[in-house]
Computed example of a mutant assay.
Amino acid sequence: MRKGSTTFLKVVVVIIALAVVALCIFVLPMIARAVAGDQTFAKWVYPVLIGMYISVIPFFVAMFQSIKLLGYIDKNEAFSDMSVKALRVIKYSALTISLVYTATMPFFFMIGELDDAPGVIVIGMVLVFASFVVAVFAYVLQNILKSALDIKSENDLTV
């Protein structure tokens, strides 16, 4: 593969990461200020906001591993143990994000109940299932890559 063929994907990863940073710096504090006066909402919204800030850590770990994986692809090292390790870290990061949002789902339910807005519950479910889908996809890719490496090593032994 020619060098730089994954540049577009790297740019997309960086743009997504910058969007999450902007969300954490501007949007989430704005939400916290908006509910600060209403203690009924604040006691349910703050745990969700804390969960969002906690989920940023594994998110950036996964973004960093994605950049590394794209670098391996650029160097023609896509079928290597390093790629399998990167996919494993992405899988665990996505599962961690899914678990964090699963833990905050009761708060999403209470916010939806108090505000009479079932869309809030759907947003919480989308966050859980989207990260779970990423984890499953990384798991499948990891197993395919592991199998390809095993077949390659068997072929190397027989030749």
Rank of each mutant, 00 (worst) to 15 (best):
Q142K: 05
S83C: 08
I90S: 00
K91G: 09
V122R: 15
A19L: 12
F129K: 04
V61W: 09
C24I: 09
I144M: 12
K10P: 05
M1I: 10
I25Q: 12
L49T: 02
Y139D: 14
V56L: 06
Y139K: 12
D115V: 09
A34G: 05
C24M: 15
V159K: 12
K91L: 13
S55G: 02
M30H: 07
V48M: 14
A117N: 15
I57S: 01
S83A: 14
M82D: 14
R2P: 13
L69T: 06
F107L: 07
L69R: 02
V56G: 08
L69I: 05
A22K: 08
K75W: 00
L18F: 03
D81V: 10
L9V: 01
I121G: 01
V89P: 00
V20P: 00
L87S: 06
A17K: 01
G4M: 08
V21T: 07
G37W: 02
L149H: 00
I90Q: 01
T7P: 03
F108P: 07
N76Q: 14
V11A: 14
A34N: 10
I54F: 08
I111W: 03
M110L: 14
L114T: 04
L69Y: 03
G37F: 02
V84P: 01
A32G: 04
K91P: 02
L114Q: 06
A32E: 11
R33I: 09
M63T: 09
I50P: 00
L28G: 00
A78C: 00
V20N: 04
F59D: 04
Q65Y: 11
A148F: 01
F8C: 10
I97G: 13
